[in-house]
Design a protein around this nucleic acid. Structure first.
Length: 569
RNA sequence: CGGGGUGUGGCGCAGUUGGUAGCGUGCGUGCUUUGGGAGCAUGAGGCCGUGAGUUCGAGUCUCACCACUCCGACCA
């Protein structure tokens, strides 16, 4: 490919609406163009990257006995009625009618289609296990697309569905798939992607993992432990705690001996400067008689109407017994040793509850205490509490991180196969319901994640395995005959040697040429110029600047070949 | 779904008390340049988001709508 024939413009300035770097760089570099909210077209550069990622995914899925198939984007509503999801899934499922008035939908996930495809095939236990996967467009009418390709409404996804005759078999295969995913992310240049236990959400099933690229711009919150291997997303961590009633996870109880919470400590917990006085305003619910303690900056007032609306229950200022330890609206030292403060994340809209002037100054949160200061009832885990207690190792060592979810795997169980009447006959002649796993990777999101993690201020630094081209030939001074002649020849030779090269022979200044090359992020660069021609050399550099060498003209091709194979690992 | 913001050449922006639009960049052409986004000259390119209203007159004021966007909620 010659650069001056490459369709798509490169820009000096990033678009005004880009918030994260990968989005800005991919627009500036001519990778993608916004069409509408959450909808993008891809230029050739983007397609080349996506194609390479898809190839890696195919190879690893085939290696664990997957078979590529293809489901339709448009599905009849009747298929989703079989599983019950036509009714239960919200407006992110785009529903419409065809010319005959039949209700249809755009596939946002394909469990139903997968069961539909294989339920005749899978009538005998001898066929199991098996897995089908596809790489195809999904449409989800997201309420809020964001971050360029990180969260879009239409995207390409690899989704795979496995079918098994026992949970043991599913678990075994699930583990193989987990390993395949690790290989995929490592090959795509993100070996640091970690898997975390996750909640299965609308998918149903029990065990699930999300594969996360840890980054500050991530939209998912992950709970990890600095002492052991515990990793979970926020929802799963909450469930673990709720199910097991691990008392030490309550944040304030751990940080302090029960009954000794001070105003300073509350301020610290709420990340408020201590000098800004913090008060605890105490309400009591009319029906359940539970106390609700709202911590609020001292100079603000609680908006009681909003509090009522939020709790969906009448509240009134609490009348406290004298020895309750909650004195005069301030949370002072406790006198009852049974009292336990709870972070109540069910009050998550609480920033709306206060009234005052400066919106960003509102930091407070709610705690809920049961009436008797005895047995604890609470809504949720102590979310977003650094140094909370790890449910695995028990140390006060939880760390809260942000991440981008680049893939996920679920042990679905028989939710879909049972609902859709898929059956097989086992070796004893009994009729059984197969169980399923499902496995997804977002291709565009993965590409954007690599861009986010592998870049500098001038552009992306693509790993060799997914780079749009392997080598970028810059012919400085293409108006110089010797340089141009050699560069033309070099380009032809690369093509003959199956080296993927993009060739820039435009007559432009070096600055323009290098800036464009940086935006394309091709891992290896060969610089041909009059200055180099005098020495009978080319410069070979890597995009990440780890390689800078001068190579004799007749050694360029072998050197490049060698470097490519090294960089492919 | 709740709360903000913004809509003006391809991109980034300015536009004062209302008087039919300007800057940077990019694009075309010519000459000069050429190792990190060159210089001069010249040219093209705009229904100022849409629709009503106020006014002699609206990019500017009023109202409604639409689109995009940010924060939050939600999110196989």
């Amino acid at each position: 490919m010659k650069l001056d024939k490459l369709i798509g413009e490169r820009f000096k300035e990033k678009p005004a609406d880009s918030v994260i770097e990968s989005h800005g760089l991919m627009v500036r570099g001519g990778y993608i163009k916004n069409v509408a909210n959450g909808l993008f077209s891809s230029f050739n550069i983007m397609r080349r990257i996506a194609n390479k990622i898809e190839t890696i995914i195919r190879e690893e899925m085939d290696a664990i006995d997957g078979q590529e198939v293809l489901f339709p984007v448009v599905l009849p509503a009747s298929l989703w009625e079989e599983s019950g999801r036509y009714e239960t899934v919200g407006r992110e499922l785009l529903r419409f009618v065809d010319r005959n008035g039949s209700p249809m939908l755009l596939g946002m996930t394909h469990e139903e289609a997968a069961v539909h495809l294989v339920r005749e095939y899978g009538q005998s236990y001898t066929k199991y296990p098996f897995m089908v996967y596809q790489l195809q467009t999904k449409f989800r009418d997201e309420a809020r697309p964001r971050g360029g390709l990180i969260r879009v409404r239409e995207f390409t996804m690899k989704d795979g569905y496995s079918f098994h005759t026992s949970h043991e078999d599913l678990e075994e295969y699930y583990e193989r798939c987990h390993e395949a995913y690790e290989k995929i992310f490592a090959r795509a240049g993100l070996p640091e992607v970690v898997s975390v236990a996750s909640d299965s959400g609308m998918m149903g099933g029990k065990v699930a993992h999300e594969f996360m690229l840890l980054t500050a711009i991530g939209e998912d919150t992950i709970v990890t432990c600095s002492c052991c291997d515990f990793r979970a997303n926020m929802e799963a961590a909450a469930n673990i705690v709720l199910n097991e009633s691990i008392e030490p996870l309550l944040p304030l109880q751990k940080i302090h001996t029960p009954g000794t919470v001070t105003i300073e400590e509350v301020c610290k917990h709420l990340k408020l400067p201590v000098e800004k006085s913090c008060k605890a305003v105490i309400y009591q619910k009319a029906v359940t008689q539970e106390y609700v303690v709202v911590f609020i900056r001292g100079d603000l007032e609680v908006n009681e109407t909003k509090l009522r609306n939020h709790l969906k229950e009448e509240v009134y200022p609490a009348t406290l017994e004298e020895n309750s330890g909650l004195v005069a609206g301030y949370l002072g030292p406790h006198k009852t040793d049974k009292a336990i403060m709870l972070f109540d994340s069910s009050l998550r809209g609480i920033n709306d509850l206060c009234c005052g002037a400066n919106e960003e100054d509102y930091h407070f949160t709610g705690f809920q205490i049961d009436r008797d200061y005895g047995e604890v009832e609470y809504y949720d885990l102590a979310k977003a509490i650094p140094f909370g207690i790890c449910p695995e190792c028990g140390n006060s060592s939880l760390v809260i991180l942000r991440g981008i979810e680049v893939g996920n795997i679920f042990q679905l169980g028989d939710k879909y196969t049972a609902a859709m009447d898929m059956r097989y006959t086992d070796e004893n002649g009994d009729i059984k319901i197969p169980i399923m796993g499902c496995y997804g990777i977002g291709v565009g999101r993965l590409a954007a994640s690599v861009c986010e993690a592998r870049r500098d201020e001038n552009g992306p630094i693509w790993p060799m395995a997914i780079a749009p081209w392997q080598v970028h030939i810059c012919c400085l001074r293409a108006d110089d005959d010797a340089s141009k002649t050699y560069a033309d020849e070099l380009y032809e030779n690369m093509l003959k040697n199956d080296i993927e090269a993009i060739y820039d022979d435009r007559i432009v200044s070096a600055g323009v040429m290098f800036s464009d090359a940086d935006l394309l992020g091709v891992p290896l660069r060969v610089i041909v110029s009059p200055r180099n021609m005098e020495e009978a050399v080319c410069e070979i550099t890597s995009r990440d600047k780890s390689i800078e060498m001068k190579v004799k003209l007749d050694e360029v091709i072998p050197t490049i070949k060698n470097l490519i194979s090294q960089m492919l690992g």
